[in-house]
Amino acid sequence: MPERVYGKNYKINRYMDYKAISALLEKYWEGETSLAEEAELKAFFSGTHADLPEELQEAAPLFQYFGEETQFPAEPEWDMSFLQETPPQQAPARVVRMHPFRNWMKYAAVVLMLAGIGYAFRQHHETKLIAARQEAEDRKAYMEAKKALAMLSRNFNKGTDKMQQLSYFNTAVEKLQGSN
């Protein structure tokens, strides 16, 4: 936090500062502060302040703790020799091996679909065959009926001829009887 220049209105400025910091602190407790605002709070609490309001006093130790470096052990010596030992190389592209049956549901869906199409095609073909067979049978029945009727007609005509001859015979007999 930049150092403030205080003039005659020192108390008023300080009050304004505290008010702004209190507002920032509330945002901090709510977890809504940005990193810059948190840095501002840390900077504020790293200094000493007179007449600190209670809500700021309560947060002071926490922010002072954040600034403490003593909570960690001293950084050890690092062994960076691995940088020379390992030759820099690009990691090979990762080859993801897929098990052939990993996507079994896809295969199952394709098989089911093919089976469905096959069944539908077969059904359609069978319906067509049945219709053709039915038509052939109907035609055959028609031809048979036609043949039977023709035969009947022929025989009927034969009977008519005989009746005609019989009629001539009867007429002749009647004529003879009449003359006698």
């Binding site: 309560e58 002071a60 130790p61």
Partner: peptide, 10 residues
Amino acid sequence: KLQNQQVYGL
């Protein structure tokens, strides 16, 4: 926790 323990500014 700090309020309960009354840990206040230094």
